[in-house]
Design a binder for these strands. Sequence first.
DNA 1: CCTTGACTTGGAGTCGACTCCAGGTGATAC
DNA 2: GTATCACCTGGAGTCGACTCCAAGTCAAGG
Lengths: 134, 134
Amino acid sequence: MKIAEVSERYGISSDTLRYYERIGLIPPVNRCKSGIRDYRDIDGRRVEFIKCMRSAGLPIEALIEYVGLVQQGDQTIEARKDILIEQRELLAARMKEMQKTLDILDHKIEVYENAVLKKEKEMIQTEDQVPEII
Amino acid sequence: MKIAEVSERYGISSDTLRYYERIGLIPPVNRCKSGIRDYRDIDGRRVEFIKCMRSAGLPIEALIEYVGLVQQGDQTIEARKDILIEQRELLAARMKEMQKTLDILDHKIEVYENAVLKKEKEMIQTEDQVPEII
DNA sequence: CCTTGACTTGGAGTCGACTCCAGGTGATAC
DNA sequence: GTATCACCTGGAGTCGACTCCAAGTCAAGG
């Protein structure tokens, strides 16, 4: 699989794929004799993993460290686990924040909905229905 | 309330507070005669709202637009609602992605846990217990 | 054989969101 | 009255994460 196909399949630009490789986020990809990247199954799965982690906002630096440890073999298993646990906690914390915000947005949207309805019914004032904190 | 106190209370640097104001993310804050910002209740609530939205990753640009509409009064209610709904959907989508990643992390952590246990019990090989996709 | 097109590299540019800084002002403390 | 301190402004710098570009290579088609 050449880079264009991988790019297509995972929705990551070729530039980004090469970038990930040169910063060590993805281990060196297999090449054909003329130097062109020839992604194998394993490379594809690595790309997919990184895509997934990045889509959740895990920082590149932490992922590079993790990937580096994996390359070093078995004696790094605990260190790797620690990284994953730390990132898992950070992720859970971000999600909690987001849930709070989502709830507030839902509430505000509901209030706006009521305001719109009132307006449509041509009632007096919508002002005090939508507390304009901002 | 001066900027330092607001900064302290909401955990946002004074620099960031001034930055938010100059880009229009927060409407101009009240000043005392000598030109020093004197945050009132309403300003505080605006800061809190922005902090909440930003903590969930809502883009500054969308928030500036929203804030601008609020300043323009009632006839922008529907446009504001639309922005909130759009951002709500984007937020929900990001959270869904993150949940997927969280599940994968949890699974990987569990697998690592088993690998560590096996290692501690000095059993044969952990290799095939931890599928090293990367 | 030559053109085309997808690939290669290293390096520079961009973008969002801050963060820092120099130079200046005004109120309070000694 | 002068030193200190928090504040002010406009502008420059930083950071993470790409994204773009110029210049070069190679395989395949006409």
